[in-house]
Amino acid sequence: MSLKLYVDSQFVSPYAISAYVALREKGLDFELETVNLDAGQNKDPSFTAKALTGRVPCLVHDDFMLTESSAITEYLEEMYPAPQYPSLYPVRPEKRAIARQVQAWIRSDLQALREDRSTYTVFYKRAEQPEPPLSPAAQAAANKLLQLAGRLVNGDYLFGSWCIADTDLAIMLSRLVMNGDPVPQKLKDYVIFQSQRPSLQDWLKNINLMTG
């Protein structure tokens, strides 16, 4: 068995983080390789031959290649199932479906918020000047995010114990928390708690190496 994960060279893609955390949570050994998106390496034939959609993350499992983070996490869940491996999703079908719903929504909505509060501002030292106020569209997206998270988050986890949707939601909320935008305390506490998870801390080590 051979596993390799391609991620962005700056280590800021929330989708690459999701796939990386999933591999770590499963306790799988894998090789990590970076792709310089600014230099267009994701468009190079050597990469597109592996990555069907030409994006990161890209998981290579022996001769099988897969892109799109939610597809990767579901593939890992099926290939390395519980109880032999830790689960990435809740056991109950209804909760699993909600976790996948949260993942799909985060990836398909909130574009204005992603533009105004990039993950670069979450993981790297921000400029001395704070980020400008959210645009009306980004504020509307933020309100939608906070309303949904406020309904789902009641404690440290969404469903009583960790699942991959916790990481995805916490990273999205971090766009607001780390930039000082108004966020209810219970959601701040949730983000802080999730950020201490060893699998995510392991990802952050890559950024610490880059920034010294």
Rank of each mutant, 00 (worst) to 15 (best):
M1G: 04
Y6T: 04
Q10L: 08
V12Y: 10
S13E: 04
A16K: 03
I17H: 13
S18H: 10
S18K: 15
Y20K: 07
V21I: 13
V21A: 10
A22E: 08
L28R: 03
D29R: 11
F30G: 13
E31C: 07
E33F: 03
N36H: 11
N36F: 14
L37N: 12
L37H: 12
G40S: 11
G40M: 09
N42D: 14
K43N: 10
K43D: 07
S46V: 11
F47L: 04
A49S: 05
G54S: 04
V56S: 07
P57W: 00
P57G: 07
C58A: 08
V60T: 00
V60A: 02
D63E: 05
D63K: 06
L66D: 00
S69Q: 00
A71T: 07
I72P: 04
E77R: 07
E78N: 10
Y80S: 04
P86Q: 11
S87T: 08
K95V: 00
R96E: 09
A97K: 06
I98K: 04
V102Y: 05
A104E: 15
I106D: 11
R107L: 08
R107Y: 08
Q111A: 13
A112F: 06
E115Q: 09
T121W: 06
V122N: 07
F123G: 00
F123M: 04
R126W: 05
A127E: 12
A127S: 11
E128P: 02
E128A: 15
E131G: 09
A138K: 02
Q139E: 04
A140K: 11
A142P: 11
L145E: 06
Q147N: 11
L148F: 09
L148H: 03
L148V: 06
N154E: 10
N154D: 14
D156Q: 09
F159I: 01
F159A: 00
S161D: 01
C163S: 09
A165S: 07
D166Q: 03
D168G: 05
A170P: 01
I171Y: 12
M172D: 13
S174A: 10
R175Q: 12
G180Q: 08
V183M: 08
L187Q: 12
D189F: 14
Y190E: 08
Y190T: 09
V191G: 05
S199M: 14
Q201V: 12
Q201P: 01
K205M: 12
I207F: 15
L209Q: 15
G212Q: 14
